[in-house]
Amino acid sequence: MTMETALTAAPARATTPATLISVENVTFWYGSTLILDDVSCSIAEGEFVSVIGASGCGKSTLLQLLDGALRPGNGRVVIEGHDASKRDDSRAVVYQDFALMPWKTVAENVRLGLDYRRGDLRMKQREEIAHHYLDRIGLGRAAGMYPYQLSGGMKQRVGLARAFAVQPSILLMDEPFSALDAQNAEILREEVRGLVAEERRCVVFVTHNLDEALQLSDRILLMRSTPGRLAEDISLVEQKSDPVAWERIHYAEYRARLWEFLKGEVAAHSELKERS
């Protein structure tokens, strides 16, 4: 009962505009190094968008800009109508290296965002929400354990539960499965697919893994490197609407196309290195 009210007590989103994220001519420097050059894109409610690009092209930087942890040098990042640097409850991040607090138990880690953001809820309610997501992701029995007692796959489950527990309208995931072995990655991919479908959240998903991107996304953004630019914006919605044709024909086509792009990027990179 309290669970229900707690869950539905999340801020109403009836009036949110269709566009949740709008990146407008964003430029970003680290010191005097140009990392992102004139990046623009917009992402709508309920979209699952993957970002693919060579290592070091600025994908994590872009995600940090969306989260508001970094500010653009030029241009703006607008989230739900206001500047991304304004802290609000709209976003939650899943980190590549988990970023769990070693001194908090699994349950406390999952509650982290709720403790910070949902001061309006009583401790009991926050605990219930945290346990709901822990059970949902199969870690109910590990609630009292510390992160050092968990395997990598379990740690990232905690990371996912922590992000989903605050019920963000936007989930930002930075290569969430790249530190995991192939089987765990596959299992968690399924979990994420299920959770996202269930709750229709907008997801920005950074990955190196082409199959991961193709399976999960509605849209794929290809990033060019040095400096980071958006090269292509590929929508898969239409192709995926015919699942048979998607699996038999288009999947391989798109995979080849993405692979060509990445190969070109890596080749360009090594040429650059050789010349310098």
Partner: peptide
Amino acid sequence: GLLRAARSFGAG
């Protein structure tokens, strides 16, 4: 990474 995560989840 932990500092960033805490701030991102809303810690003052």
